[in-house]
């Protein structure tokens, strides 16, 4: 079911993260998915499946989206990243163009 203003991100394991569209669009890739002129499945349904991103990482990514928006609006805080997540997070960032 599609709702305006929010988007559902699904991890490899099938976990669903429902977040603000605005936050998701911090990622250039997701932005393109949701705004591309053609009616891709993602645009129609308002949900995106990432078969190569695990739940842990996707959760961290969603946290990053919100942190990034705050940061952009002038609230300077640290974004904590657990060392063991670093590598996978990097790969996801490259993929999502964040």
């Amino acid at each position: 079911m599609k709702k305006e203003g929010i988007v559902k991100l699904i991890s490899a394991e099938g976990f669903e993260f429902v977040i603000d569209k605005k936050a998701a669009m911090v990622s250039q890739t997701i932005r393109n998915m949701l705004t591309s002129p053609g009616s891709f499945a993602e645009t129609e349904l308002g949900e995106v499946t990432f078969p190569e991103i695990s739940t842990t990482i996707l959760e961290k990514i969603c946290q990053y989206f919100y942190w990034s928006m705050q940061y952009a609006s002038g609230k300077e805080t640290e974004f904590h990243i657990e060392p063991e997540l670093t590598l996978e997070l990097m790969m996801a960032a490259n993929y999502l163009h964040t």
Binding site: G38, F40, A41, T49, P51, E52
Partner: peptide, 20 residues
């Protein structure tokens, strides 16, 4: 499919991932 106006069934994520 895109040129044939048939894009609605396609998954952006899948195509992007393949190209990636």
């Amino acid at each position: 499919e895109i040129y044939n106006h048939n894009a609605s069934g396609l998954s952006f994520e899948e195509l992007y991932r393949n190209a990636y």
